[in-house]
Design a binder for these strands. Structure first.
Lengths: 100, 100
DNA sequence: AAAACATATCTATTTTTTTAGATATATAAA
DNA sequence: TTTATATATCTAAAAAAATAGATATGTTTT
């Protein structure tokens, strides 16, 4: 868990929003075609639609968030679903609470 | 309290270090010439020495930290002392805890 | 097998951040 | 009242991040 790397992710409003949206996928996104739950998170396309940014930009964002271990990708057919990594998010906040 | 602005400050190891050092000035810095306490924090020169970066860079860092309300400056003669703004730091962490 | 679809990666451009030297300002000391 | 000291601000150059179009890859559908 790298405080500086995670802070870089959080220093962009859209990326913060994505993390927040993924907290309640059923509230923030439409249902998926193939599956009727959000256990593995939300597909890239839905996230992109919500932000209005380009596909490649969102993919880059999600990649940086994955590198920081803030989200976990799962491939399901032709879609990649992203969900929050609650453990690391908690560890980050708790570390800030203690060390900062 | 701006999450993105504060996260930008924290996305640099030296700035994180400065915040940590200011938590225990008596441990991390030598005593000041004029005053025998750290109630108003630590002078810029001491912080600069500890980082090894240039004077203008440290001044820029401290300015960005002040703009984010993470530190509070106090002028004492020819020195400027910086101390942590515990309220805002706590508010930031608590907000992350709740919203993130 | 070809076409369509979702996402990732590559590439280039623009924007932002970092960094420090030079200079300005404010205060204190000589 | 000049000189020294501490810090802030200005300026410019270098480095890093943001962004999106183009292309590649993997998967499904036809």
């Amino acid at each position: 868990m790298d405080i500086v790397e995670i802070s870089k992710v959080l220093s962009n409003q859209t990326r913060v929003n994505i993390l927040k949206w993924l907290k309640e996928p059923e509230v923030n996104f439409p249902p998926h075609q193939d599956i009727d739950h959000f256990n593995d998170g939300v597909c890239v396309g839905y996230i992109q639609d919500k932000t209005g940014l380009s596909q490649s930009t969102i993919s880059t964002y999600l990649n940086s968030m994955q590198n920081a271990n803030l989200v976990i990708p799962t491939r399901h057919g032709k879609w990649t679903y992203y969900r929050r990594n609650e453990e690391v998010i908690k560890e980050y906040v708790d570390t800030l609470k203690g060390e900062l």
